[in-house]
Structure formats: structure tokens, C-alpha cells
Write a protein that binds this DNA or RNA. Structure first.
Lengths: 337, 337
DNA sequence: AGTACTCGTTACAACGTTGTACTGAATTCA
DNA sequence: TGAATTCAGTACAACGTTGTAACGAGTACT
């Protein structure tokens, strides 16, 4: 069986509470008592029972991180950052895979998952604003969607600026027909389209709707399929800006298979800076959100929200940084004209 | 505050225990009482407090899945499978990232992580046999290393056969100089080398130690670096068998950058069947362990072990299936000679 | 009619922890 | 020297749940 406070107390000839005080570093303990107890703790290998502690104080020290798909590298990388950040604050992270399912996301936002979590960081995919209506049962931080501003704390990056910078980079290579893959109904996509248009406008390049085809899921397969369609246009693109790296890798594969050179014939930029992109051939230019900072902000906001339970508190918006990382898929280019 | 059994009991005018019996589906409840209580439960939105339940019965319904690095696609894919499998058994999975650190792995094997987990599925990287000596505090299932057979339940695949099949496939393409990347001191690597040698012997091809260079971590970077060294050999390889897909993708990148064609000049096979390999250019031939089956076996063994706490029970070895998946990196080949 | 059994329900205690209120001793102050 | 204050440590209760034992009311058997 497990060692309990009581076992330690008996062996050290003190009360249970004194041992508890030592464990929790309460100041009301004499130095020699403390060291004696400390020693017995190590001898017996005592570890506090978290369930009992939770039962007593209403906290588990566990937060959930819910993502649409753990196999999407961006999310697994983000999960690693969140876990690392939480560990620093001695909090445990439970990874939850929603499958991008709206109901699952909604359930999590309402705190319907296990009752043993103190709060949730949720990266929504299908969630609608209305699904947050009944929320508030559990402290919640949302990632990535500016749309929910008034409903909950959230952490975003400046998608408009990021997309603008990436597009500007492609324009500065002399490209005129810059396609976009990933411009779908999601708020994130919409933001990035705005940045894309802004950059085009600033360079006096007209926006061609043909270059912004409808997209499905953000997978390599979609990227490949959409790229194939783009290549069939009477006037195909000379650059592609994909709204995530997976789309870009899929598109890249089609371009290479079709015999085109990257970046000479078509330049490619992605979004997310996943590890795969760094090792692709050619390596992928991409917008790199500061995942470490996102994780830190999300955990900080969540713990704040957990600690101060006052319900009236206004939702907070935190913005993390990003950076355009230029790699072979755009850089080896000789500017034309 | 949260709804408690007591609240439900008061509203339904029964005792707390009766509500508990309804919640737990105990048969000793009259049908009309049951439905009345059921209704109040839904009305109030009661959810059991897992910590209290655990405190009472010594189980949390949480198992941990510890991997060396969640960003390695093989592990994140496996994690998804484990989570899915556990969900079916209404068990929650806590993902633990050991960083491949021997101490962290050892700590987990001894059950030193949070005291709130019922058991651990551990995919070890640096763990030594001796580290398992003090184990047994927590039910444990190991993945992948046949080495620990007598110390703990474990799930493996037939690495020898898998490596033999992959090597045979390369040999049947007419390749004679088949390099191996990933033949390091780890038990898994050793097993695969055995299969590799068996296949060579069966085809009467001599094994050249130069074609089995020392390897470091199983990353794209290592794959790339080792491939570069292999290309500098006086007689470079005409095929490469990498012991994981990341190594293969790194090697592939170097080959393409050096102007060689895959598979015409050099054929490549990997191991793990991660998603990246399916979308690489060219797509990667690989050994696909049956991840779903691995997850199912691991969860089953672990729950078994948790339920029957008798300490005398012998460790179980379970073997999951695998399959050689042939893709472009070896198949478009015209057999030479 | 009395005993034995079954059934549905209940009261109580306990899981391991910690906050509150308390105690007794040592120390400080007037 | 007596009163107030500080300090170290303790006893008790409670968090929400469930296993055990016990209960009274029927029902079945003799």
C-alpha cells in the first residue's frame, strides 16, 4: 500500500498535521522537527495522495489541453510546449483529442469532461460562438480564434500582419500570381485573407478570385488536390501561400511531381513552422508563430482565471508573436524581370 | 459549486447511498426510485467527483502513456491510438513526455509520477533493465523492447521478421549494397540488424560493416548526416534501410539534394509508417507496425494488471502485427542487370 | 401464526488530506 | 512578577464518495 501522512507521523513521533505542514512548506515548523520529518519522508518514500488533496481543497493541479487532432504536427508541437510550461508551474496536462468535432469541443468548453480538471485550454476547430453560451463551469482559455473575444480568455497571433508579411515576401520575389490555399470559412482563414489582400493592394497587384479556391481540411491531401486544380488554370500561379504547412507540403509534392522547380517556377510559403517543413526538399518558408509564448500565455491566463474565481472578471485577449522564416522554397530564387 | 450526491438525494427524497447506487448501476434499486433519481440527476446536472471516488476506492480511471518525445510522429500517432482505445474502455489517458531521459523513464516505471494514475504504458528509450528492479509500485506495460521480458508485461512487434522482409524486398530489386541507418546499441536496433543479416545471408550477399555506420538520435538530421557519410564511401550504397521513417526522410533529402534519383539510383525503405512518409516525394516504402493493435494490446494488458493485483502473476509478452508497405521510394524501380 | 428469507433502503464509517481553532510552552514587555 | 505575545505543535472536522452492516417491510415457507 501507499505511504500516508499518518505513517510518516507515527515514525517521526509528530502529529499528522505537522507532517502535512512540512510537506507544504508551511513556516510554522521548527527547523529540527522539519529535518527529522523530511528524513522520514524520504525513508518511507512518501508521496501525497493527489485525490485526497484535491478533495480537500477543490483543486487537482490538472489542466486539459484539447486539440482537434494530435497527429497534426502543429498541435503536437504546441502540446509539448504547453506540457513544458505547465510542468514549470507544477501543473499536469491532460491531452484531449476532440477530433475537431463540434459537439466534443462544446462539451469540453462547458466543462463536461472529467470533473477532475481545474481548467481547459481549447484549440477549437468547429466550435461556434453560441456553443460558448453555457460556458463558465470551468475556467477556459481559447487558442487562435479572435472571434470569441467577448466570451472567454483567448490567445491569438496577429494573423492579418503575418499573412501580409508572407504575401509581401512573395511579391518582393517578383511574383504576380500568388495563389492562396486554405481560405475557408474559418475565422483564422478570413483574417489571413485580409492580410493577403492588404499586401496585394500595397503592391498594386489585383486579387484574382480564381487564385483562392475553396479548401477542405488542412491536410497534405487537400493541399495536393487544390494544387492540382490550380495548375489546370489557364494562367497558373507563380507562387502559393498555404495557410498551414501541411497544405504546403501537399502542394509541394504535386509541384515537384509535375516537373516544376521550387522556387524557380513556383515559390511556396506555409504557416505554422512545423518540423517537417524544415526538412522537406526544398525546405519550407513559413510563418512561425511563437509556440513557446503561446503556451506560456495560455497557461498563465488559465491559472490566473483558476485562482481568481470572481465571475465578473472581463475576458482577456493576449497576442503572441510570430516571425517569417525564409527557407529554400522561396529564397534560392532569382528575382525575375 | 458543483452538484453533490447529497443535493440529488435531498431533491429526490432518498438517501445519499441510494443515489450512489443509481449512479453506479447497482441492481438493488427499485425501478421507480431509479427513474426518479435519474431524472433529478439530469435536472441538476450531477457529475461524480472523481477525486472523492478515487479516494474511496483507490482507482482514478486514469492511465499514463509515457513517450520519449511527443513530437516524433510515430509517438503522437501511437498516442492517438492509445487514447482512442482507452476511451472505449472509459479510461482517461495522461500523456507524459519523458524527453527520452533515463531518469524520467525510471521514475515513471517506479510509479513516482503523480500518485493519481492507475497504471503506466511506457515507451522507453534510455531505460535499462536495472531501472526496472524497484518497479512494481504501479502496474506497468512496456512497449517495444523485448529486452525487459522478465521484468514486466510488454507489447512488441517481430522486429527481426520485419527487418528481414524489408531487406529482402530491397534485395529483390536487385540491390547488393544495402546500407542500414539506425543500427545503434538499443535492443530494437539490434533485433532489426539480425533480420537484415538474415535476409542478406539468405540471398548470399555479404554484410559490409561500412554500410552500418554508427547512428545517433532517430531524427531527420541524423538521417541526413549519416547519408552524407555513406555517399562518400568509395563504393556507395544502392539502397538504404532506415530504422525509422524520420531517418529515411532525412536521408532522402540528402539523396535528392545530391542529384540522385529515388529509387533509380538509390532505393529507400523506412520503419514506422508515419504520415509524413506517405506524402513525401517520393512516398516512402516502410514497415508499418499495427499501431491500433499495439494500443489495444497495451491497454488490455494494463487494465488486466490493474484489476488483478496479485503480485505473483507472470509478465505477459504480446506481439502485434506489422506489414511491409511498398511505395514509390522502392517500387517504381526497374530491376537492374 | 411464527419463522426465515428477500428486497429496497438507510446510517455510519472510512479513504488521505488540510483549514480552523486550540493548547501549552517560551519569550517579551510593563 | 504578572500579563500579553509569539511560537510550535496538536485535535478535530470536513471535502464527496462508497463498502459494510443493519434495518423494516413484505413475501414465502413450515
Amino acid at each position: 500500500m501507499d505511504v500516508r501522512l499518518r505513517d510518516v507521523a507515527e515514525r517521526a513521533a509528530v502529529s499528522v498535521k505537522t507532517v502535512s505542514n512540512v510537506v507544504n512548506g508551511s513556516p510554522r515548523v521548527a527547523p529540527d522537527t522539519r529535518s527529522r520529518v523530511q528524513q522520514v519522508i524520504e525513508e518511507l518514500g512518501y508521496r501525497p495522495n493527489l485525490s485526497a488533496r484535491h478533495l480537500r481543497q477543490g483543486r487537482t493541479g490538472i489542466i486539459a489541453f484539447a486539440v482537434p487532432d494530435l497527429n497534426v504536427p502543429y498541435f503536437s508541437e504546441l502540446a509539448s510546449s504547453v506540457i513544458a510550461e505547465a510542468k514549470q508551474r507544477s501543473v499536469t496536462v491532460l491531452i484531449e483529442d476532440t477530433g475537431g468535432d463540434r459537439e466534443a469541443e462544446s462539451a469540453i468548453a462547458q466543462g463536461l469532461s472529467s470533473s477532475l480538471i481545474d481548467g481547459v485550454i481549447l484549440s477549437p476547430l468547429a466550435l461556434r460562438r453560441a456553443d460558448l453560451a453555457g460556458a463558465g463551469r470551468v475556467p477556459l482559455v481559447l487558442l487562435g480564434e479572435r472571434d470569441y473575444a467577448k466570451a472567454s480568455d483567448h490567445v491569438v497571433i496577429d494573423n492579418v500582419a503575418a499573412a501580409r508579411e508572407a504575401t509581401a515576401h512573395l511579391l518582393e520575389l517578383g511574383r504576380k500570381r500568388i495563389a492562396v490555399i486554405g481560405a475557408d470559412r474559418q475565422e483564422t482563414g478570413r483574417q489571413r485573407v485580409i492580410g493577403y489582400r492588404e499586401a496585394l493592394a500595397a503592391h498594386g497587384v489585383p486579387a484574382d478570385p480564381e487564385l483562392m479556391p475553396v479548401t477542405g481540411e488542412f491536410t497534405r491531401a487537400t493541399g495536393a488536390e487544390v494544387m492540382r486544380r490550380l495548375l489546370e488554370l489557364p494562367e497558373p500561379p507563380d507562387a502559393v501561400f498555404c495557410f498551414n504547412d501541411l497544405l504546403a507540403l501537399g502542394a509541394q509534392r504535386v509541384l515537384l511531381a509535375s516537373g516544376r522547380r521550387i522556387p524557380e517556377d513556383v515559390a511556396i510559403a506555409g504557416f505554422d513552422d512545423i518540423e517537417d517543413g524544415r526538412y522537406a526538399t526544398p525546405s519550407l518558408t513559413t510563418v512561425a508563430p511563437d509556440k513557446t509564448q503561446i503556451a506560456r500565455l495560455a497557461v498563465t491566463l488559465l491559472l490566473d482565471r483558476i485562482e481568481t474565481a470572481e465571475p465578473g472578471r472581463q475576458p482577456v485577449l493576449a497576442q503572441a508573436g510570430h516571425e517569417l522564416v525564409i527557407r529554400e522554397s522561396t529564397s534560392a530564387d532569382r528575382t525575375k524581370e
